[in-house]
């Protein structure tokens, strides 16, 4: 009996991402924080679709008669993972360009808007 412990674990992951976004200054660490929040949300989506005693929704060599977990959250999490990857690549590209321009990755020092 584990209760709602998986949900709590996902929320702890999201809270760690918030902590990173609030208290870190390095741009790469901020990107890592966004990635933590994405991972927590993806885990939460998959955990919402779990059925007690369920097997994966794949019929190849599946045990007969066992309940299957919900497939729709898994499919949409697949979409979410790819979109998160795209945004992470874009953010890292911006970080590289900012470092090339300003010579620093500190978010406090690159706040001004002059080029």
């Amino acid at each position: 009996m584990i209760g709602n412990l998986p949900f709590v674990a996902c929320m702890v992951l999201i809270a760690l991402g918030f902590w990173t976004l609030l208290f870190k200054r390095n741009l790469v660490k901020l990107v890592i924080g966004v990635g933590l929040i994405e991972s927590g949300v993806n885990l939460f989506l998959v955990a919402l679709g779990y059925v007690r005693g369920g097997v994966p929704p794949i019929y190849t060599y599946a045990p007969a008669g066992a309940p299957m977990v919900l497939p729709t959250p898994q499919a949409l999490t697949l979409t979410s993972i790819v979109i998160g990857l795209a945004t992470t690549a874009l953010m890292l590209a911006f970080a590289v360009v900012i470092y090339r321009h300003k010579g620093t990755l500190d978010a406090r020092k690159i706040r001004e808007l002059r080029g």
Binding site: G3, N4, L5, F7, V8, M11, A47, G49
Partner: peptide, 10 residues
């Protein structure tokens, strides 16, 4: 997360 609904019971 604690109050949403029981885990494993959609």
């Amino acid at each position: 997360a604690v109050a949403v609904r029981p885990f494993g019971d959609p």
